[in-house]
Amino acid sequence: MSRRFTPKIVTANDLLEGDVIYLTADDRWSRDHAEAELIEDEAHAEIRLIHAARQSGSVVGAYLADARPGPSGPEPVHFREAFRAKGPSNYTHGKQSERHA
C-alpha cells in the first residue's frame, strides 16, 4: 500500500544572497514561508519542483518540504524547515531581529 501524500512547498536558496526562499502560487519567490504555495497533489508538486529547478540563474538547491495548512498560510512540519524559515541565527539583523522587534 502506498503512503498518503503529505502537502509540500517548494523551497530553495536565493543564488546571490543565500536567503531561504519559497515558491508562491503566482510564480514569485518569497522570503516569507506563509506566502509559499501549499501543494496537495503529488504530480503537481513534481511539476512545480521541475519549474523551480529550471531557474538555476536565480535559485539553488530547490526541493520539496513537508508543510501543513495554517491560519496565515503554510506552516513547517519539520524542525529543519522551521529553523530555515526563521533565518540565520547568527545575525543581529534580518529575520531573527525582525521577529524580536
Score class of each variant (00 low, 15 high):
M1D: 01
M1E: 05
M1T: 01
R3I: 00
T6W: 01
T6H: 10
T6I: 00
P7V: 00
K8D: 06
I9H: 12
V10F: 11
V10I: 15
T11Y: 05
A12L: 04
D14M: 04
D14W: 05
E17H: 08
G18F: 07
D19Y: 03
I21L: 13
D26R: 06
D27W: 05
R28S: 07
S30G: 07
S30H: 06
R31G: 12
D32S: 10
D32Q: 15
H33S: 04
E35F: 01
E37H: 15
L38T: 02
E40S: 09
D41Q: 09
A43P: 02
H44T: 13
H44D: 14
L49Y: 11
R54D: 13
Q55L: 15
Q55G: 13
Q55P: 06
V60I: 14
L64N: 13
A67D: 05
R68W: 07
G70N: 02
S72P: 01
P74D: 15
F79C: 11
F79E: 11
R80V: 06
A85S: 15
A85Q: 07
A85V: 02
K86E: 09
G87Y: 01
S89E: 12
S89W: 04
N90M: 05
N90L: 02
H93W: 08
G94D: 05
R99Y: 03
A101R: 15
A101Y: 14
